[in-house]
Design a protein around this nucleic acid. Structure first.
Lengths: 206, 206
DNA sequence: CCTCTGGTGTAACTTTTGTCACTGTGGAAG
DNA sequence: CTTCCACAGTGACAAAAGTTACACCAGAGG
């Protein structure tokens, strides 16, 4: 309860009370899928602890990382889909043990009107995700794989606050929608240029 | 005035009055840039007539088409940037003579609170653009140039309500951030498969 | 008519990325 | 200590896309 306040200091006290009264706290182990493409959204999630990756999927199982959700953030897509009562267009997966606060969607509309702080929170969530999508589009539209790989690693390091990225080449390739060999090749080049050090199941940034 | 009401039937009468009192109608010739990357937004635009293309730009002059704006729509980016008082991250260009209604940004915040219909309009604008960006990301993440070209042509035909796309190969290539030769090559293949007919400065869809 | 220009067609080539095939290896499980 | 197996390295090749270079042609404007 105190940690919720610390994560969302902008929320007014009455809103905090409603959140505490109506929200359900759920802890999800690492690597769990917490939203599936095509699934209907029944509640919105605020991230309290841990880390979530949000993916776009295509028909034949390809994944494509869109962005990370961190403590103090909410999933814009879930709010959007909830508002449209549409099926989710994305898949979300925990990367660590993650605690979320689930809020039934019927409350969202009323809160928008009743609580200014909620209204601002939702709008800034929309805006921030929108901005992230623009950056992502830049990447795929204008950058080659080597640059995309580099900024993927940098982003990952930043989000996890560690210069060591604990992922196999295969996992990295999946999230960039590329192939393991390509990632291995590019990482090897980066190692030769002393940009990274390669370990088993991990890449260390320099 | 009557056409504004017809385009935005959802707006309540008081809001319409404010729009008419405060909005400035401006007509922009075809091919004009009406928002530049890096420019600060001083007003939001509602499209009344014509057609606008919204692009993402990179450092070395590359363009990348994001979406079209049509009568009855608003530019989500301008609302977002205005709200953050940030520089525009996109470039917008008219493709036909276009009439827009410019609304000073200081009104936007108040309208959100005062007019439910404006609030819903802004939210649904956010949502729709968000959805379009998701589709765009699919295209560049999962599709090859031939498929992207095809859906570009289809989208163009739909927006302009005509099976003839009046663009040179060079213009098409620019908007897909590809090169003229690649587009010519792919269009030729499509012609051999009887999917299109090629004319000078135009492509006809079948 | 002639000239010039921008649009188009196309071949040859390079670069980038994806795919296939195979090797080696670290570390967990037996 | 073996046996596996997921992970990683790498060469060879294929496919997609970008680049270079040049030829041709339609139509605008003299």
């Amino acid at each position: 309860m105190e940690d919720i306040k610390a994560l969302f200091p902008q929320f007014e006290p009455e809103l905090m009370n409603e959140i505490i009264a109506n929200g359900v706290i759920k802890t999800i182990p690492a690597g769990e899928v917490l939203m599936r493409t095509g699934q209907f959204i029944k509640s919105t999630m605020l991230i309290l602890e841990g880390n979530v990756k949000v993916f776009r999927e295509n028909e034949d199982g390809g994944e494509f990382l869109m962005y990370f959700l961190q403590p103090g953030e909410a999933c814009a897509i879930s709010i959007i889909c909830a508002a449209k009562t549409e099926a989710s267009r994305v898949m979300a997966k925990t990367t660590e043990e993650t605690t979320v606060l689930m809020i039934p969607l019927q409350l969202l509309d009323r809160w928008m009107l009743d609580y200014k702080s909620w209204y601002h929170f939702v709008l800034s969530t929309y805006r921030n995700r929108f901005d992230e999508l623009l950056v992502l589009i830049d990447q795929v539209a204008f950058r080659n794989m080597d640059e995309r790989l580099l900024s993927y690693l940098e982003r990952h390091a930043k989000v996890h606050n560690s210069s060591i990225i604990s992922l196999s080449h295969q996992q990295i390739a999946d999230e960039l929608n590329s192939s393991r060999e390509v990632v291995s090749r590019l990482l090897k080049k980066m190692e030769q240029r002393h940009m990274v050090i390669l370990h088993r199941n991990a890449v260390e940034m320099i």
